[in-house]
Amino acid sequence: MIHFVILISRQGKVRLTKWYSPYTQKERQKVIRELSGLILTRGPKLCNFVEWRGLKVVYKRYASLYFCMSIDPEDNELECLEIIHHFVEILDRYFGNVCELDLIFNFHKAYYILDEVLLAGELQETSKKSVARVIAAQDTMVENAKEQANSLTNIIAQATK
């Protein structure tokens, strides 16, 4: 299973973290510190797997962002690379040529998407299209709710005039 997902920028700034195994808040900080030290310094021609504290960390760099996932030692590293790629492609489709800034300003959207791809540290959906579909549907729901709320406040505002 995947124990955690971390997105770090090349400067070591955290852009997204998701923990599927129990780590306390303190441990989480430590893990991020250690891993960014380990991964950001690796040369470009090295393989994308790092052995770390009895786990394997699979990472891949897309533009200025490092996508890191930690898996059990007996898990399939190539599969994990493919999952990372799967996630990135979905992000790309959603944001339209995704860049780091998209993930900074819309970090909650990135979390929503990740929650549709992975659950409990396991892959839940292999179809990019169906992820895109449910995300779009949820976005519409949020928009509708907002409009409704706005119109409600309008009504109240008018009534109290």
Binding site: W19, P22, Y23, T24, Q25, R28, H108, Y111, Y112, Q138, M141, V142, A145, K146, A149
Partner: peptide, 20 residues
């Protein structure tokens, strides 16, 4: 009650808390 509130509530809960 509303979906947007729940969604953000759950997201915050997952991010800010751990299972302990």
């Amino acid at each position: 009650n509303s979906f947007p509130e729940k969604k953000i509530g759950y997201l915050g809960f997952m991010l800010l808390l751990d299972e302990k």
